[in-house]
Design a protein around this nucleic acid. Structure first.
Lengths: 133, 133
DNA sequence: TATTGACCTAGAGCACGCTCTAGGATGTTC
DNA sequence: GAACATCCTAGAGCGTGCTCTAGGTCAATA
């Protein structure tokens, strides 16, 4: 499926606001956006794919600076493949670290809820309080 | 192990700055902090445990508003156990959603890296570009 | 041709979570 | 008793990532 559209439709496709799309472009996150005869931005399939990928990175904690770097590199073609791989591998490591944090927090919550349940059951606060809230 | 200390040591124990600790207290994240004869804050074991738990929540995306709510509830004793459980279960669901996002992103990165590798191997960009960067 | 809606630029404003400054009090050490 | 670290309050400032306003242009529709 091929795309060629103005900013409103594009914003819908990548699930960001029109304001945000223009701001992303100003931040260097969207390469080579064309204009129509009336000066309006025209987006193509590649822009959608690029932004959907960045969106996934953003939602997992990649900063605008890193997304800009990735975008800069990608407009420079094959010479930057290694640099892009390196950036992505760093982000992947950050993702793994986040997953570890999240799993630990989920475990802490389970322990806390069990603590609350015991408290409620016995109608008195249990002694060995591991982590309080 | 039992703790009774001033703000500097406390900040070390929970790995936040002294500034941040005072700010957290102003935000209602630290309940019932005592003072010594000179007016300096005195922290106990329970404060350390409370903050270490909040720190885990914070690192997994819990907002200051939610941490404040949890703190408010916890100073009110057993009557708020259900409310606390509910809040924690909501956060646990948010954590599961984050983990799903992170796993999807890791998968996307792997696909992108594979794409780059094929590009480098063939010295030309592969056709079926699923997600571009 | 008048209206309407989508678009344009430039720049201000905002929510969040800290982070730091200024000016001063306290308390331990030499 | 003087120096120095650590603490205090009140409040300003900052980095990030948007979000919105003002004032105007463009093009399709009635």
């Amino acid at each position: 499926m091929s795309v060629r559209c103005h900013i409103g439709r594009f914003a819908q496709l990548v699930d960001r606001s029109v304001h945000t799309i223009r701001w992303y472009e100003a931040q260097g996150l969207i390469p080579a956006v064309g204009r129509d005869a009336g000066g309006r931005r025209v987006y193509e399939t590649e822009h959608v794919e690029h932004l959907l990928f960045l969106e996934r990175m953003r939602r997992t904690g990649m900063s605008v600076a890193e997304m800009r770097r990735l975008t800069e590199l990608s407009v420079q073609g094959w010479r930057t493949l290694e640099a892009r791989k390196s950036l992505l591998k760093d982000h992947r490591a950050a993702i793994e670290a986040q997953i570890a944090d999240l799993k630990a927090a989920a475990h802490d919550i389970d322990a806390k809820v069990a603590f609350y349940d015991e408290w409620a059951r016995n109608k008195r606060r249990p002694r060995p309080e591991r982590g309080s809230a």
